[in-house]
Design a protein around this nucleic acid. Structure first.
Length: 291
RNA sequence: GGCGUCGUGGCGGAGUGGUUACGCAGAGGUCUGCAAAACCUUUUACACCGGUUCAAUUCCGGUCGGCGCCU
């Protein structure tokens, strides 16, 4: 059985993925699936640069606002939901376009990751209280195979214990996919990020953060994101508004570097330099596929 | 002008007569239920000149610069 065609648009923050996705969805009768780990949270709108109401009216957008900030989210949940969306879009004879900058989420679909069961909250919070050395001792005691596990990384060791030594699975790259990558050169990127952050602040990011903090406090996971956590010091008076803005900008640049590192290793990405290229690539791709 | 004090890599900040402290930033990388996370590797220095010493960033003298006090 041949898999139906699937298009990905990946790349770093502020590279223009969302806009390209809308253009392509309009042109190729597509629907957009979000693969950004922060835009899934309800209420986290401005800081995550979610598409506007008008944009969402133009093209169906999926997997935005699907997570309760208190409940959290994960790559495994994303993979399941995205799978459902993809099937759903196929039944409508439309083209799914997965768009996002979270490498792990993208890979979970490309390589069909089979995640192991989630963690037990009680066990997790207990394991988190232990020191890394104790966790390692535990691994040895139970005889779990730690080959390939980063034993300096507490989270990985905890996962190994939770999984009782079992390892997750993956498959070779999914067939019949097209991965488009958006890249911006360093000088422009920094400029884009500066503009983007200024825009967010003008659009009322401060109000949004204030509202979210009042509702959830600082400790929930999505509050630790860029454009949110930096406000804590600002509200406390430890930094000025200018410092706040610069901090958000530099943290965004750091994020972009990590995103680049992730996508660099996927040799199947077609890196684009202009949007017309993407139209040609998809046209060719769809001619070889069938819906 | 005199006395004292300080002068460490992009920034912050230890320390020593003879193995690069360290943190941040920078560079590279890992990545399967927190991934905008977590973790790993790594570049850059001891203001300048002279002296003592087998050996000086570390001791001594001077120069320059910062800071403080005094006249």
């Amino acid at each position: 059985m041949k898999l139906l065609p699937l298009v990905f648009i990946v790349g770093e923050t502020a590279s223009g993925k969302s806009k390209l996705a809308i253009d392509l969805a309009l042109k190729f009768n597509g629907e957009i699936i979000n693969a950004d780990s922060w835009a899934v949270y309800r209420g986290f709108d401005i800081g995550t640069a979610k598409p506007s109401v008008e944009e969402r009216r133009l093209v169906p957008h999926h997997l935005f606002d699907v997570a309760d900030p208190l409940a959290g989210y994960s790559a495994a949940i994303f993979k399941r939901m995205a799978g459902e969306c993809i099937e759903d879009i196929y039944t409508r004879k439309k083209l799914p376009i997965i768009v996002g900058g979270t490498g792990l989420y993208i890979d979970s679909i490309i390589y069909n990751y089979i995640f192991l069961p989630g963690s037990n909250l009680k066990e997790r919070s207990y394991l988190e209280t232990l020191k890394l050395d104790d966790l390692k001792t535990m691994v040895n005691k139970y005889g779990f195979d730690s080959t390939g596990i980063d034993l300096n990384n507490k989270r990985r060791v905890i996962r190994l214990i939770e999984n009782k030594g079992k390892r997750p699975q993956s498959s070779p790259m999914r067939k019949n996919i097209l991965i488009l990558g958006l890249k911006v050169d360093a000088a422009n990127l920094e400029n884009n990020i500066k503009k983007r952050v200024k825009r967010m602040l003008n659009d009322g990011l401060e109000r949004e953060v204030k509202r979210l903090v009042n509702k959830y406090g600082w400790d929930i996971e999505p509050m630790k994101g860029i454009g949110y956590r930096q406000f804590k010091d600002y509200f406390n008076g430890h930094i000025t508004y200018d410092q706040l803005r610069e901090l958000i900008i530099s943290d965004t640049i750091k994020l972009v570097k990590k995103q680049k590192t992730w996508f660099k290793r996927n040799k199947s990405i077609h890196w684009l330099h202009n949007s017309s290229q993407s139209v040609e690539l998809i046209t060719t791709f769809l001619n070889k596929s069938y819906i």
